[in-house]
Simulated assay, not measured.
Amino acid sequence: MTSEVTDTATVYIGLTARTADLPRRDLMLVWDERFGWYVAIEPRGDDRPPVICHLRDRIAPPPAAVAQFVTDVLGGHRRGRLSPVPAQLDRATLAAHMTEIRS
């Protein structure tokens, strides 16, 4: 897992599991402060990663909700397009929230 804070906070987690409909493509779980959590196909070269599913409604849901989301996506139970999540946390609150989750 990597994380980085620049002009946009992001997190990347490479997934070892694959979906039944994409058995030869690596997947990734990504979070950013604009879109929240989503599962996408690892890009090949410079292509944009195709999003498989987006966890909507909350920018920073509890870890258990994210884990269930990934389980659901890998099981083929969710599909969706990437769309921005309404911002619910300012930068300082978001940083404090993320620190709590890591503890």
Rank of each mutant, 00 (worst) to 15 (best):
M28A: 01
S83R: 15
I59F: 03
H54S: 00
Y12V: 09
R81M: 11
W37K: 10
P86Q: 11
L15G: 10
A65M: 13
P63Y: 14
H54I: 04
A9V: 05
A20C: 06
T6Y: 00
R25A: 13
R18W: 15
Y12K: 07
T99F: 04
L55S: 01
T99H: 10
D47K: 00
P63G: 12
I59M: 13
H54Y: 01
A87V: 09
R56K: 01
R18V: 15
G75W: 13
S103E: 06
A67I: 11
M28K: 05
P49L: 12
D46F: 05
T16R: 15
I52G: 10
Q68N: 13
S103D: 05
A87H: 00
E100G: 08
Y12P: 06
D7G: 06
P50F: 09
P23N: 07
A17P: 08
R81F: 07
P62H: 15
D72G: 05
A65Y: 06
H97I: 00
P62D: 11
P50K: 14
G45E: 04
V30H: 01
A95T: 03
P84W: 02
Y38L: 12
A40N: 06
W31E: 04
D46P: 03
F69H: 11
P63I: 01
L22G: 02
T71C: 13
V85T: 13
R79T: 11
G45H: 07
Y38C: 08
Y38T: 09
A40L: 11
A40M: 08
Y38S: 03
T10G: 06
G45C: 02
R44V: 12
T10V: 01
E42H: 00
A17F: 09
H54C: 01
D90Q: 12
Q88F: 14
T19W: 03
G45T: 04
G80M: 09
P43H: 05
I13G: 01
P86H: 09
I59H: 02
M28E: 09
P61Q: 15
T16N: 09
D26T: 03
P86W: 00
L82S: 02
V11P: 00
V11I: 11
I59R: 09
D21E: 02
R24W: 08
T19C: 14
I59L: 14
F35Q: 11
R44K: 07
T8M: 03
T10I: 05
P63Q: 14
R79K: 10
L22Y: 04
A64S: 15
T6S: 07
A40E: 07
Q68V: 11
G14V: 13
T99P: 06
D47T: 04
P84F: 07
T16Y: 15
V11L: 07
D90V: 06
V85W: 07
M98Y: 00
W37V: 02
Q88A: 14
V11G: 04
T10D: 06
T99V: 08
R34H: 12
I101H: 13
V73T: 04
